[in-house]
Amino acid sequence: MQYVIEVNGTARRVDVDGETPLLWVLRDKLDLKGTKFGCGAAQCGACTVHMDGQPIRACQTPIASVGTARITTIEAIGQTPVGQHVQAAWIELDVPQCGYCQAGQIMSATALLTHTPAPTDHDINDAMSGNLCRCATYTRIRAAIKRAADLGRT
């Protein structure tokens, strides 16, 4: 089945079964490997992308349900000011360890900061608890979100 989806501002055509999760379309058909596979069950957040600006789990998003929604992945999150601030804060605070979860963390953090420019610890807990970091970089993720919020103010 042919689908045309908008990914990072570009219309992409793929020919896959409608139940194929967006995750595998991105990774294996569109060669966008920044979005990661961790659990395939909406439990780890490694596959987080934005659909019309909302963070979703690409592993649980059938391609057939995407329609005309705008998909943004880690490869293009730096095209928004908020995304740039998040990436800059991540580098500044040296957030990652193995780095595998970080694309998903950044996608969730960017979505949070987009609608909540000055998040409290509570906001961060709620928005980020769907993203696992097996290396437990949480202390720095929290600090980097606050740092990115600062960058957004100046």
């Binding site: 987080t48 789990r57 649980q60 349900s65 928005a127 608890s129």
Partner: peptide
Amino acid sequence: ARLYAGSCQACHRETGAAAPPYV
């Protein structure tokens, strides 16, 4: 609502409409 947003929304979406027939 916040619990929903953290644990359910990623699949069932903010609209509650999810992605039928799969989800």
